[in-house]
Design a protein around this nucleic acid. Structure first.
Lengths: 139, 139
DNA sequence: GAGGATTACGGATCCCGTAAGAATG
DNA sequence: CATTCTTACGGGATCCGTAATCCTC
């Protein structure tokens, strides 16, 4: 299942016209036909009713349109999320430290850090040094 | 963007192992490698950290895993919804009728119908006969 | 004949599996 | 040398655009 098929379908549904959709998506008209057919074949239902001089959604098409929109939306969100993260944005930081450090150095270091990174959410777990290795490995 | 890549990724993440994933998905091991690489390339981030003797999610991977799961779930729901509909299940019925009918025949017919189809949700719109044609055409 | 969708078709690309390679323990 | 992931490679399928066809106005 190819997401671009859904995008094509949604575009056709919105523009009500294969040619306009092909222009909006910068592909040829036959490609639109093929995308729609592929989608219909994979779903096993007919999504668009090809009238004489118009294209209309079938009831199945109307139902699936909602789904496809949600899916594409979710996908876009995912892309955004993952890429903003990759660009360096962080919102949480997990720390595992030994009891000794936790009582002595850490409070001071943490205070300093948060002064400069107030947007970062920090969670601290206190455990023995020899457990930290495993904890990190197993995330 | 191919949904099967996400499926492969989720499977690898769950099984923590390319080979096991390949067996679970009934594909060869290289195919798993390729799917993951394709996904990583398209997202522009590294999802899995290939250790010497293990495979682990990167932070990006952890974030995207949630997304991918949601997306696949949504997709499954969509398939189910559309196919149960195609099998004949209906839950709503829209009617457009003229004022005269609405006052005379319709109430009786509707009552009868609902006695036998209690699961169907009906919405009635009253409009002039000559408008009904256009309304149906434009859905 | 203009406009819009489908079908036909050819070349480029992609996809998957097999085989070989690399790295680890 | 057993296990596991990656790279190489070849044949088949797929994908897209151009061109031709169909159909309606």
């Amino acid at each position: 299942m190819e997401l671009s098929w859904m995008k094509t379908f949604v575009t056709v549904a919105e523009l009500g016209n294969f040619r306009k959709a092909s222009e909006a998506l910068y592909v040829s008209q036959p490609t639109v036909t093929v995308h729609i057919k592929s989608l219909e074949k994979e779903l096993g239902v007919s999504l668009l009713e090809r009238g004489k001089r118009f294209v209309r959604l079938t009831e199945e098409g109307r139902i699936y349109l909602k789904q496809a929109r949600q899916l594409l939306e979710l996908h876009q969100e995912g892309l955004k999320k993952i890429q903003s993260y990759a660009q360096g944005y962080r919102k949480s930081l997990k720390l595992a430290i030994s009891p000794l450090i936790a009582d002595t150095i850490m409070p001071f270091v943490l205070k300093k850090y948060l002064e400069n990174h107030s947007e970062v959410e920090i969670s601290v777990e206190i455990m023995e040094s020899n457990q930290i290795d495993d904890a990190v490995m197993s995330e």
